[in-house]
């Protein structure tokens, strides 16, 4: 009962979703939107699990004086301090929004900016492999790069036409093949879960 019942409740929940999305009679009751709101509320009620996990890991690091334990204090103070602020104040209040805009904002933007550095090293690594496949990948990347930056059109006037053809034919075909395959795989996974075949996530072996 402890293992099977949660799985079958999940199957019923899945069947319910499909019924409310496909069939006019069930959909007309609006029960789908109500169920969505209830599920979101259940997620919210569980929202401290990660918080507890972080607290556990970092309290132990401090307690055992692990290397770099001082940084765990920074993390816990920031986490409890900000959560505490938002418990009493709305996110739009001056202090919480100042922290969001001037502390989290610049870190976010710079982390995003770091990607620009790493994109070049990723390209370099792909280039080092030197087989046909990485060659095709990089050639296509170079063509797109030149096409987007308007330099290509100055080198050769047919460049823009070439880029448009590549986008319309191999890129569309290639991406569609990936997307259809991924959708079939995802559907297969959903059916395996709903039939109770795939249950690794419940901490149980398959079958």
């Amino acid at each position: 009962m402890r293992k099977e019942l949660p799985i079958w409740l999940g199957t019923m929940a899945g069947a319910f979703v499909v019924a409310t999305r496909w069939f006019t009679l069930v959909n007309a009751t609006g029960v789908d939107r109500m169920a969505d709101r209830l599920i979101v509320a259940s997620y919210a009620a569980a929202a401290a699990v990660g918080f507890i996990g972080l607290t556990r890991v970092h309290l132990r690091a401090i307690d055992a004086r692990r290397p770099l334990w001082g940084y765990s204090i920074v993390l816990l103070v920031a986490m409890y301090g900000y959560a505490g602020l938002l418990f009493f104040l709305p996110a739009s209040a001056p202090l919480p929004s100042w922290i969001f805009l001037n502390v989290m904002g610049p870190v976010f933007s710079t982390m995003y900016g770091l990607i620009a550095f790493f994109i070049t090293s990723a390209a370099y690594r792909a280039f080092r492999v030197r087989n046909l496949e990485s060659g095709i990948l990089l050639a296509a990347a170079a063509i797109a790069l030149l096409g987007n930056s308007a330099v290509g059109g100055r080198i050769w006037h047919g460049w823009d036409g070439l880029v448009a053809w590549i986008m319309a034919v191999p890129v569309t075909g290639g991406f569609r093949a990936i997307q259809v395959g991924a959708a079939l795989g995802a559907l297969g996974t959903a059916v395996r879960v709903l039939l109770g075949l795939e249950r690794s996530h419940m901490g149980s072996p398959q079958g």
Binding site: I136, A141, A144, T172, G174
Partner: peptide, 11 residues
């Protein structure tokens, strides 16, 4: 075709 698509997305 898939590699070309991925390369274009990269660029």
């Amino acid at each position: 075709a898939i590699l070309i698509a991925l390369g274009v997305a990269f660029g």
